[in-house]
Design a binder for these strands. Structure first.
Lengths: 117, 117
DNA sequence: ATTATCTGCAACAAAATGGTTGCGTGTTCC
DNA sequence: GGAACACGCAACCATTTTGTTGCAGATAAT
């Protein structure tokens, strides 16, 4: 049968796909931007920078990081740049986390059975 | 009624809880560690460092980061330190991502209705 | 036309990150 | 007891990240 023992969650392609997404989400400022963007649809950079303690340029950089991870998409509209959430990579990331969690649950059950044997 | 407009995904406590978890997952090496740990239950540091191109000390640092985010728990057993996945923060992170995604879907529908009105 | 906004670019500083090497200590095995 | 193994600690280095300031260009408003 030659069944694969591993479920292959640690393959290089998967890691390279998902790690940058998590890295982009792994900053309070950027996570806040995502949260704000998912509540009120397209927002300009200045709008997003408005209530913030940090500079507009810093916000811009964070937005570029999110955009680099594909989590967000910005489009020029006149003199302002409107940003929206891109839901797909978010869903992929969620799937991956669920997979890890399920995998661990299964391993845990196997371990428990082994110990209690 | 004074209904809250915002769903409150961007509150400081939520951000401070989840950002470190995503940050911990936001590195290919650490994500690989998580994947390996969810496949084969408790692993020592040396075991985890074995097939790796980087040093045992580097692996140790990464494990400490994961531990700091609560994603993993290490326990000394004799001369080796055995690590296990801690599933709870993983589930919390998944929930948060799902919430953001749902929130965005809802906002998107509202936006579409508004435009097509 | 002028002024006020919104953005981009570049240079820079400070701090965090990812990794190394070297050494010391406790534990297991023979 | 001695060798081999697994780990922790500390110093150190290179790179990336996070944030700043200053300035210039395009667009909108009056």
């Amino acid at each position: 049968m030659s069944r694969k023992r591993s479920s292959g969650l640690a393959t290089a392609p998967l890691l390279r796909r998902h790690a940058p997404v998590f890295a982009a989400l792994g900053d309070a400022t950027r996570l806040a931007l995502m949260a704000r963007l998912c509540e009120r649809a397209p927002c300009s950079i200045s709008q997003l920078a408005d209530g913030s303690p940090i500079t507009r340029q810093a916000i811009t950089k964070h937005l570029r990081v999110l955009e680099g991870a594909g989590l967000v998409r910005g489009e020029m509209a006149g003199r302002e740049c409107l940003f929206e959430i891109e839901p797909e990579p978010l869903d992929r990331a969620t799937e991956y986390l669920e997979l890890v969690s399920q995998q661990w649950d299964a391993a845990f059950v196997r371990l428990k059975n082994f110990v209690e044997k």
